[in-house]
């Protein structure tokens, strides 16, 4: 057994108002608390200038590491370089961040480690759900695919989806509008409304970035009030957060593929703990192997299995119990 030194971790939040950001941050704090660590946070408010100011503030506190929830290094490069020069380890936890990332050490990566969700696999599993639902619908089935190429996780989710649909000759992507980052909800309503008018036989509206799903829901509700699939299109997206759960319960959203995003935070704390306590380098793998356990098992959430009270779905593999027990076995805890 070794001791884990009492560390202070700086945590730069992408947008504290975002639900997923909250999930990751709160999980990180919960995990850090088990080890007796202090977490100092700063809200980047989704704005590069604020993020840069946050980085400066966090660095000036001389933390033992700085973690963020998936901020592309291009947005905070100066801060990352400053931290690197000060010898502060840099870690991110998020959806897929680096292109085709299986390793974050390629290229000019400024992060020391990153732990991410399997977004491509999520795209595959959601697409398989779509294919299954469409099997009973005769003829060619039109799909509107709202993409989000701004983020790498958005790109790979679509790669996953396309890998499945490419083998389905009767399913056709008729439009691929991009979500407008500056106008997520209202912009999506406008776009999806127009496209549903143009392609009235649409059977699926695929929303790559869940932040826009309520906009698509408004468009579908307005056009297909009171109707359900196959008379109305399937509306599918990623992550069963409480608002999406409510829309699933109401039958507006058909399905959301979910993984335990928060597991990234627990993995990050474990990797940092090993690094601090044993000087073990952090894993280059974005999803390190923990006894073969799959913390990122996908779940397709539908009306049939939506959690009571619109809660975030319970983890199929309980990483909280796993890591807490692991740390009690490995470390002398405070």
């Amino acid at each position: 057994m070794v001791s884990v030194p009492p560390e202070t971790i700086g945590y730069l939040r992408y947008v504290a108002a975002d639900y997923s950001d909250g999930l990751m941050y709160n999980s990180f704090v919960q995990a850090a608390k088990v080890l007796g660590w202090k977490v100092v946070s700063c809200d980047g408010q989704g704005t590069p200038s604020v993020m840069a100011a946050c980085m400066s503030t966090l660095i000036s506190d001389h933390p033992n590491a700085i973690v963020n929830d998936g901020i592309p290094q291009s947005l905070i490069a100066a801060g990352l370089q400053q931290a690197k020069a000060a010898g502060i380890p840099l870690v991110y936890t998020s959806g897929t961040l680096a292109p085709g990332s299986t390793s974050i050490y390629s290229g000019t990566n400024l992060y020391d480690a990153g732990f991410t969700t399997p977004d491509q696999q999520m795209g595959v599993d959601l697409a398989n759900y779509v294919v299954k639902q469409l099997a009973s619908v005769p003829g060619t089935k039109d799909v509107i695919d709202q993409t989000f190429p701004v983020a790498e996780w958005g790109v790979v989710r679509n790669i996953g989806m396309e890998s499945v649909l490419s083998g389905q000759p009767d399913i056709k992507i008729v439009a691929s509008p991009q979500a407008n980052s500056a106008n997520l909800v209202q912009g999506t309503t406008t776009t999806i409304s127009a496209l549903l008018s143009q392609y009235p036989k649409t059977k699926v509206v695929w929303i790559t970035f869940d932040g826009t799903v309520s906009g698509a829901a408004q468009a579908i509700q307005a056009k297909y009030a009171g109707q359900t699939f196959p008379n109305a299109p399937l509306l599918v997206t990623f992550y069963a957060d409480p608002q999406t759960d409510q829309l699933i319960s109401q039958g507006v959203v058909s399905a959301a593929v979910n993984v335990q995003l928060q597991a990234c935070s627990w993995i990050a704390v474990d990797q940092l703990a090993q690094y601090f306590a044993r000087k073990t380098p952090m894993s280059p793998d974005v999803r390190p192997n923990y006894s073969g356990l799959n913390f990122f098992q996908t779940q397709v959430i539908t009306k049939a299995n939506v959690p009571a009270g619109n809660a975030f779905p319970a983890p199929p593999v309980n990483y909280v119990t796993y890591f807490t027990a692991k740390w009690h076995d490995e470390f002398k805890l405070p």
């Binding site: 509008p177 991009q178 407008n180 406008t190 776009t191």
Partner: peptide
């Protein structure tokens, strides 16, 4: 403005 947005979207013009 709404007509322009809807019409151009139908032409597949990007945001």
């Amino acid at each position: 403005l709404s007509v322009i947005a809807a019409g151009l979207t139908m032409f597949g013009i990007s945001t």
